[in-house]
Amino acid sequence: MFQKIKQFGKHSIQTIVYGNKWKIAFFALIAIVLGSSIFLFSRITEKRELVYHEVPPLVDRAGSPVLNINSNKEQINALIGFYLDEYQKNADITFDFALENEALLTGEFKILGFPVTFYLYFDPYVMDNGNVQLKAKSLSIGTLGVPISEVMKMIQRNATLPDWIEIEPKEETVMIRLDQFRMQNGLFLKAEKINLVEDDIQVSLYLPEKNEE
């Protein structure tokens, strides 16, 4: 009987020990997941010295349209890809942008040494002044619940972009300021129509008035 009690006691102790091991492993896993999430959030929201550029005033250009350009997503994507490759040639962090049925911005950052890719989707809108506003609508970043505004802050901190592209994390928008885009001989562009579903993109080229600088 004592032998049975001894064996039973030994079995109970082993059960308790193994049970505690599983509990320890379970809570350790939770701690790792929570720690990683906190680390990721702190890295994304980390305050760095930002260089704020004064938003230039809207340029109300006077002129006459001399050429209406009808394009499509394939042609615009080729142009965007060429431009970004040249502009980001020496950049530490690069981003890709393409037009599908939505406008898509992709990039990656590292968490615990592993690359994490994000996909940020926008709806494009042509403004009355001929500029283009991209309004963020959804974000795909795996299973991580990161707000769109925080990802846009990260992009604003790290992206190498021309002055005529403005990122507004609070409003979750990107403004393509064609009124600030300079061309030779004073020629300027205005967006007329962007319909990605029907693959219809229209831009007008304007000849400035003689008295415009």
Rank of each mutant, 00 (worst) to 15 (best):
F2W: 03
K4Q: 13
N20W: 01
K21W: 04
K23D: 04
A25G: 03
F27S: 09
A31H: 07
A31Q: 07
S37Q: 09
L40H: 09
S42H: 05
I44C: 01
I44W: 00
V51A: 06
V55A: 08
V55Y: 01
L58V: 13
V59K: 10
A62E: 13
S64C: 05
S64W: 02
V66C: 09
V66G: 04
N72A: 07
N77F: 12
L79T: 09
L79A: 12
Y83I: 03
T94A: 10
G107D: 10
E108C: 02
E108S: 12
F109Q: 06
I111E: 14
P115Q: 10
V116D: 01
Y121K: 10
Y125N: 09
V126G: 02
A136L: 05
L139P: 05
L139T: 07
I141P: 01
L144W: 01
V146Q: 02
I148G: 02
M154W: 14
R157F: 05
T160Y: 06
W164C: 01
I165Y: 04
I167V: 15
E171W: 00
K190T: 08
A191K: 00
K193P: 01
V197I: 11
V197F: 00
Q202P: 00
S204Q: 10
Y206F: 15
E209P: 00
E212R: 08
E212Y: 04
E213K: 15
